[in-house]
Design a protein around this nucleic acid. Structure first.
Lengths: 333, 333
DNA sequence: TTGAAAGCGGTACCAC
DNA sequence: GTGGTACCGCTTTCAA
């Protein structure tokens, strides 16, 4: 059943049917009703390919994230999908992993699919150096690119991210003010956001007259037991508190504390990041920074729609959303 | 840059360019090289819409799940996306929620997008009665439909699921054999898989000569604190063990035990389902049934490809994968 | 308000 | 092995 069939049955031209489908004002109400009734009766659905050919758009948005099985990204993807769907857009989801080559491959693959916009979730896409974000600039020449949780400067690259620096500065400061002197910084990558957190942590130490010690900056794989075991093995490492860049790492620290029978937060004060289920699952429950994914996604969707509607002048290239610490049982401030 | 441009530059016909793009054997190696070089040079990518129009396929597979922010589904989606991508297929992801109407809407939306196959993740799609799966039968008339974690009988509906009944029967049996007499069954839905688990639980009770008590079958919302609080409030409810249909529910039970200072597993023996991060995050760590998503996804992908390659006779309509209990600290058998 | 017809960018059949 | 060309199903301009 195609537009020709409908036209014939309705006794009008395909142009008219097309206008009805697109709800053009230049068709009489009477004709509209008639044609609609027939489309309904025969269960006609316009062919998306033919439509795409003409309009060069399929109302589809590409979402790339390193790995949806990560709770934070899954959450983001869920919010994005829901929101975009409300605007009549579908989502093609791609999990690129963390390797540069694959990120680039996925982007060009999506470009070939003629998606309407590209949304990248995760600060890994912000790259560590200019050469790593070149592909984003290239992509941005063809369609609007949106980054969640990272910042890349460039025309038509719109970024939404939390103030990781500020919140980490703040949390670290509070730890110091509550008497901690040796704060361990736990991290699992060198992404944009990880670097922001690290910088905030270091600034807080400096501003409070504490030394920035290389030993106390630990890069570990984000697996609970791995973190616990590494901390247990490093008997040389002395610390009275932990600022972790992810809940998984923080829970590893909690497991370490439990294993060593340390009192939390008295002997070891711990904060995580992302405010995921993990933080209410562990024991004691984890104080964690809420990165406000929902808000970041909301903003991104809003911006995407504005840009797609040609109002890109009204959309800021960078949008920062304030994070906030959700206090539970692993902090005493 | 389209096929006509390339043809002109290369001094061949569009037919030849098309053949080169599709790597047809009926083009001389020399011509292929020449045309390929030009395509490369000008960065030509075939228009997917035009191609779709002709072939009526866009090498895209629709994935529907109730909610990707759920760890289990996120995991499944991640596996599916990775696997399908290896076969050159992209994924359109839809989160339908649990309402019948929305499930149906999403399916017809995807059908209109002319996807090549449909994969549904979650036993909620198996429905509770025939009328609820009618839309799947309709869809299956147009394209192959795959279910992960649920069973629906019907032509061209291929299902892969764990043996929830058997593993629950088994676990419940072991609890009884280790001396438990009042086993609480925790559940958050009436989905196909939930019903299987319940049936396995009840069968085990019966086979061991224990009564099936309505009080001990509890339907709760899958939120850790909610579960804990409900159990704390129900002071009338006596139980010495818990079989939960999801890790989240089981962790709720652990929180309850911790709050009441019950010893786990001595005073309260607990098992969860899905073997998610939650099970290694909580304290004590949870024994949980591994539902083998990865294997379910692997099978589904394999089957999808076979069906799309026209070998549907070789694909079984139902594939069962044995689950297994991963023992941690909340059980003593 | 409606219709005719020219694209959109490919695929595939049929000649040569 | 290569080229010519009729589709695929829709949008949109131009005329009427």
């Amino acid at each position: 059943m195609n537009i020709y069939d409908i036209a014939q049955i309705a006794g009008v031209s395909i142009a008219t049917v097309s206008r009805v489908v697109n709800d053009s004002p230049r068709v009489s109400e009477k004709t509209k009703r008639k044609v609609r009734a027939i489309m309904e009766e025969y269960g006609y659905t316009p062919n998306v390919f033919a439509r795409g050919l003409g309009l060069d758009s399929m109302k589809t948005i590409g979402i790339i994230c390193p790995d949806v099985s990560d709770a934070y990204m899954a959450d983001a993807v869920a919010h994005l999908e829901r929101g975009l769907h409300e605007y009549g857009y579908d989502c093609i989801l791609c999990c690129s992993g963390y390797k540069q080559l694959n990120k680039e491959k996925y982007v060009s693959l999506l470009l070939a699919k003629r998606i309407d916009a590209l949304i990248l979730v995760g600060s890994t896409y912000a790259g560590e150096e200019e050469s790593q974000v070149k592909y984003l600039h290239e992509a941005a020449k063809r369609l609007p690119v949106f980054l969640i949780n990272g910042y890349v400067e460039g025309e038509d690259i719109y970024c939404a991210y939390g103030d990781d620096w500020a919140v980490t500065y703040d949390v670290t400061g509070k730890m110091i003010e509550s008497g901690r002197k040796r704060i361990l910084f736990l991290c699992d990558s060198h992404s944009y956001s990880a670097n922001q957190k690290l910088a905030g942590y270091e600034a807080a130490l400096r501003d409070h007259g504490l030394p920035v010690l290389g030993d106390l900056k630990l890069y570990v794989k984000n697996r609970i037991h791995t973190v616990r075991d590494i901390l247990l093995e490093r008997r040389d490492l002395k610390f009275d508190s932990v600022v972790a860049s992810d809940d998984g790492l923080a829970v590893g620290a909690i497991k370490y504390a439990n294993a060593k029978l340390l009192k939390v937060p008295e002997d070891l004060c711990i904060t995580g990041f992302n405010n995921s289920v993990l933080s209410t699952c562990c024991e004691p429950e984890l104080s964690s920074v809420d990165n406000r994914v929902e808000e970041l996604c909301r903003l991104t969707i809003e911006h995407t729609m504005m840009v797609l509607q040609g109002k890109k002048e009204e959309v800021p290239l960078k949008s920062q959303v304030p994070c906030r610490l959700v206090k539970r049982c692993t902090t005493d401030f």
